[in-house]
Design a binder for these strands. Structure first.
Lengths: 246, 246
DNA sequence: CGTTGTGTTGATATTAATCAACAAGTGTGG
DNA sequence: CCACACTTGTTGATTAATATCAACACAACG
């Protein structure tokens, strides 16, 4: 039962149930890409919904009917091979857009890591939306460019870095997300909210290699307190060296 | 000595030397993203130049002063590690845009594969350009989305495919470029205009492994006539199977 | 208190990298 | 026109890295 977005609940529109709490409160929501006075128009075409943890709400190859914005939680994006091998191409946090490519079918799958809220639009209305809200188009272009940079960085990691370099790079990247993390982490505590399996599928390694490499980094005094859901950095310089920083 | 773009050489503007041949003649040029009557305005901010084969005209880490469109030839995009390991993230043919990301420094390097012509703008003027030419912005958004899809596909290849699957996938991808190739190739002839070193750095392999894998595919009767600059497909189904098609 | 999911560690196998030799093509200067 | 160096590609032998197979630890949960 989708909830239609609006900041003007008093307007006499069909499908308007309640103010869009996520748009009002969350700085990275899709709604923040359009002026306040335009939110009313968005209400007619957008719907917000909850996706329970673990559910795959975009299936690679399915008809690309919608365009999404993550308004809460984190989404796992991945591609699969016939025999089950999986490559996670990224984790989309609150604020990220999904399904931008002009294609009849989704080129990836998306799964809710935790309980996720998404705001979605029919793709058939995307063109009109962008024409109506130039700010949204600029926002999309900006994020697409940044995602492209991240993708290139990941290609370097997957194609040319050793297991140790991959894990160290991943830890540093995770450390950079500290600011946006719900429990804001300290300088030296790196959160690892995802499973080893997710980390492995993101880094193009096996879970065993990820585990062994973390152990090795701990034995080398680079990190300490290796736990399931986080590690603490003992030697930041050594970690950066291990990551193969240019 | 940059040549400023214009389709109206008679206009009394500074820096207008000659009509922009590439924009007039080439269907994928940046200029085709804007209406004919607007080309005149582009002339004031765009400059076209030739890059000799092998020259690195974008260096990773340098100040991101410009935004590029490839108007002729092919460009090799890559990222490097300190010890020289290199990952080619893509080959940009005529029509591709480079330097989209909002960042102070280029996140990649770019090198001319053959003699290349590029049309470039100062990044400081990009914002204004996009405001003036909405068609350009739509075009950029579209290509960025498609590049993101290609990048995800490449992440799957680099993270999860075997050497044989990588090479087979690459051959199929090359086959798909036939339509846009200068010497238009037949159904079964796949051009390999780049060196083995380029292929290796694109697939995250060594040149030896690329060479061996091509030999193996030939011995298996999947391809035949393996030459330096192209191969012929003997068994398309076997090639697709080898690529690990979903 | 067993069961299940997740993570760690060990032993072994496999893949692709590395090191090395050589062949084929290209350009240069004598 | 022919040595010559130089680049690019192929093939072989060996090594190193990571995957695979397997056992076990531990926590969450019924």
């Amino acid at each position: 039962m989708p909830v239609v977005l609006t900041h003007r609940p008093a307007m006499p529109m069909a499908h308007v149930d309640e103010p869009c709490a996520s748009c009002a409160a969350r700085p990275f929501s899709v709604c923040n890409a359009v002026p306040d006075e335009d939110l009313y128009h968005l209400a007619a075409v957008a719907e917000e919904m909850t996706v329970p943890a673990g559910e795959e709400f975009i299936v690679e190859g399915d008809a690309a009917t919608h365009f999404f914005n993550v308004t809460g939680g984190t989404v796992r994006l991945f591609k699969s091979l016939a025999d089950g091998r999986r490559q996670i191409t990224g984790f989309a946090p609150r604020g990220h857009f999904l399904g931008l490519a002009v294609s009849d079918n989704y080129g990836f799958s998306a799964e809710a890591v935790d309980n996720v809220r998404i705001c979605r639009f029919r793709r058939s209305r995307l063109r009109g939306l962008l024409d109506d809200f130039p700010a949204l188009e600029k926002r999309l272009l900006e994020t697409a460019g940044n995602e492209l940079v991240a993708a290139q960085e990941q290609m370097l990691l997957l194609g040319r870095k050793s297991a140790r370099e991959r894990v160290a790079s991943f830890l540093l990247a995770q450390a950079r997300t500290c600011g946006t993390q719900k429990p804001p982490c300290t300088q030296s505590m790196i959160p690892l909210p995802m499973t080893r399996s997710d980390i492995a599928d993101y880094l193009g390694l096996t879970i065993e290699t990820v585990s062994r490499t973390l152990t090795q980094l701990r034995n080398d005094g680079v990190i300490s307190q290796v736990g399931v859901s986080g590690v603490s950095v003992s030697n930041r310089v050594a970690l950066e060296t291990a990551a193969g920083r240019l």
